[in-house]
Design a protein around this nucleic acid. Structure first.
Lengths: 115, 115
DNA sequence: GATATATTTCGTTAAATAACGAAATGAGAT
DNA sequence: ATCTCATTTCGTTATTTAACGAAATATATC
């Protein structure tokens, strides 16, 4: 079904989801860290992560109390792999992305994941 | 702006627009031909074509009474070029697309573009 | 210039999407 | 077993998107 093929493009059609992908390429992050970086409601972030996972871009793994999200290193869909490999080609030179990456460096998990 | 980068993915996030791209790769078509093939309202098709044009995938050229749409051979955005070059990679093996292509072969312009 | 006809624009409707906060869930820590 | 959080689900709202038909526009042809 053509609608199935499109899922991938739809997943990439949101600024926040692209930001998440780039973040996770730097290192795996738990939901609360991503939430802190995007400054969105946790429920919203959770949904974005779900969409990215369904499309095959990311995977999750529990670690202690937290669920960490990872870039998927073994995507079933070769197109997903291509996009992940060439992500910079598709969303290069973006100020928002650069700022995100800087924030990740100085991210204090203790602070980000405690109310 | 990240929203600008996304325009390309959004343009690809619709089944009918992907069908149009593949059709035009076979040969240029006027709006009424595309309309006849997609079986949608002409106004709807016109909008899809506009979105594809805005994203840089296609160009238009008047010929007689008709406006013909072409795959853009000189996209300003290198990403657009990549997608056009590798379109089969992104939407391969789709029954709908195959059926469209068959219909184009036996398309009678006279019939398609006259009420 | 008038007419016929293809195409675009406009206004509306229905469906999909993104966001929020609150409530429910689930898994580790006590 | 209970408690404590992080996470997900639910219900709602606002925005965006896709579709239609009717009306407006534009352009060959007569």
């Amino acid at each position: 079904m053509l609608n199935e093929k499109i899922k991938l493009f739809k997943a990439l059609s949101d600024p926040n989801r692209l930001r998440i992908l780039k973040m996770l390429q730097l290192k795996p992050l738990c939901v609360c860290e991503v939430t802190s970086l995007l400054n969105l409601a946790t429920s919203t972030v959770s949904k974005h992560l779900h969409i990215l996972k369904e499309a095959g871009f990311i995977t999750e793994k529990k670690d202690g109390k937290w669920v960490y999200y990872y870039i998927n290193n073994n995507p079933a869909d070769k197109r997903v792999n291509r996009i992940l490999m060439e992500l910079d080609f598709w969303i290069s030179d973006n100020q928002q992305i650069i700022s995100d990456i800087n924030k990740i460096e100085e991210l204090d998990k203790q602070l980000a994941c405690t109310p």
